[in-house]
Design a protein around this nucleic acid. Sequence first.
RNA 1: GCGCCCGUAGCUCAGUUGGAUAGAGCAACGGACUUCUAAUCCGUAGGUCGCAGGUUCGAGCCCUGCCGGGCGUGCCA
Length: 560
Amino acid sequence: MTDLVKDSIRNLIYESLAKSFPATCDSQDRAFEKEIEVSRTKDARFGDYATNIALILSKGLGLKPRDLAQTILDNMPLDAAVIQNCEIAGPGFINFRMSSEFWKKNLIAVHERKNLYGHEDITDKPGILIEFVSANPTGPLHVGHGRGAAVGDSLARLLRTRGHKVETEYYVNDAGNQMRILGRSLLLRYHELVGKAVEFPGDHYQGDYMKELAHELKGTPLGGQLEDLPEQEALPLASNYACQRILEGIQEDLRIFGVNFDRYFSERSLYAEDAVTKALDELRSRGKTEDREGAIWFTMSGEEDDKDRVLVRASGEPTYFAADIAYHKNKLDRGYDTLVDIWGSDHHGYVPRVKAGMEALGYVPDQLRVMLVQFVNLIRDGRKISMSTRSGEFVTLKEVLDEVGTDAARFFFLTKRSDSHLDFDLDLAKRQSRDNPVYYVQYVHARIASIFRIAAERNINADMTDPDLSALDLPEEEEIMKRLADFPDMLAEAAEAMEPHRVTFCLLELSELFHAYYHDNKVLTEDDRVRKARLFLVEAVRQVIENGLTILGVTAPDRM
RNA sequence: GCGCCCGUAGCUCAGUUGGAUAGAGCAACGGACUUCUAAUCCGUAGGUCGCAGGUUCGAGCCCUGCCGGGCGUGCCA
């Protein structure tokens, strides 16, 4: 039993192939069925779905594509309640036109499944760990982090709907040199605040939030300690405090943004458990390290990465890279089938390094899928704002959320493929907030909710039992039903490709169909039979909009 | 220099993993509210898919070489 239209067509094709060419199919297992490509047609002349299977297999079978298509067609078990007709076209495509009963049956399925419509029943698919955001706890989240958060969180939701067991994780870089710089930044700001002359180095964290933290400490016992203790002892106190407070702020911003991680994983905990040392020892015992110039190097063969990389500095301190190998080892040892890391695109050069690290420890590098999210260019007054946490010059996620709201921001981040640059024009986002595409989709939901409210006010019977769906005879009604039927397929493909933005575009297309339909056709008509059927249809639209928006982490409002 | 990503309408972007006549939204122009919400709808206009080759039944998508933009190429994280 499947909710995927394409799977049911694949099944028919497979049945036919198995009958026509038992030798070819017998040698394959049933997995071959998945290889059969079925796509939705762009042009209604070609039916609803098409397959190019005859074009693909013709060479291997020594047949002309159209002849092969004919054979496949002749042996296909066709059910008139599902497929209205089926024909060969062009160089050898097989086109399928579904029957109107089929669309109506699916419409009923939306009502039966409700908020599970589009969800995969099987829930024991491989476990996936998605790590994202993982912004350093050295400053508030900025807009770029917001994009990663929106993409990662929606991807997690999307994969869950398709039956994967998904956990989400934020890697907290609370160790190393940057924590010392963070601590010193706070210390200096504190000294400044209590009237000592300080010189604030350019490579320290300049943002105002450090001054605010210093202010927060004034008059507290910890503040006193920072003042009195020698720097050596004050530093760890300051950096711990700053790290903790900043992380709390990050968590609060994420909460507002609708992103809740299953786990925050501390880099420091890796050191506490000696995980870094153990990983290094293992690399050494596998012959992947080399001592040179006082440092320990990870030796790369040419195909892994272009040069060797330092694991332990001459100072004896492990690099970020060493900790990251230990971290990925830790994740893999927890038993996930797939690790997904969502990184800013500026880390792309790091991908082969981490994979090489995994391979060197005996793992399969393909278990790691790295999704690179391109930069967000923030534009104010028509000019790009350069952003850097250290310089303190950035626009925070919180500021953007205050301006445009979580729904608009999340939706906007998901209107682009993640590997293309995104211009976030603050003035535009503010000015356009009314006709932001998110409202176009949400408006569908509000309009339908409104129909049901009016029906209730007027004591119009709006129950969903036993509608006469033959009353849905308009072409635009069938178009809507087709789009609803495609929703599960779209989710499955978006999940497979790990492209949550496809959900956004699907919802926009459905919304377009609905708004046009709504404009031309009254749902609450006098005709009892038509009204009941239309209510049944629009309720299904509402449900699918809700299901889609839920995956995007956007609310589905009843009123706007 | 080398590596990764991007280049599609004036602008911002989709393009179902190589399918049939390249699509939306903004912006522009012209229309539609006595109606279940006009945050809507309908229409007009807009293209050498960066350029040049190649692969094949078929290329915006794959390969090669250029051009342009972004980012990497730290004993930073």
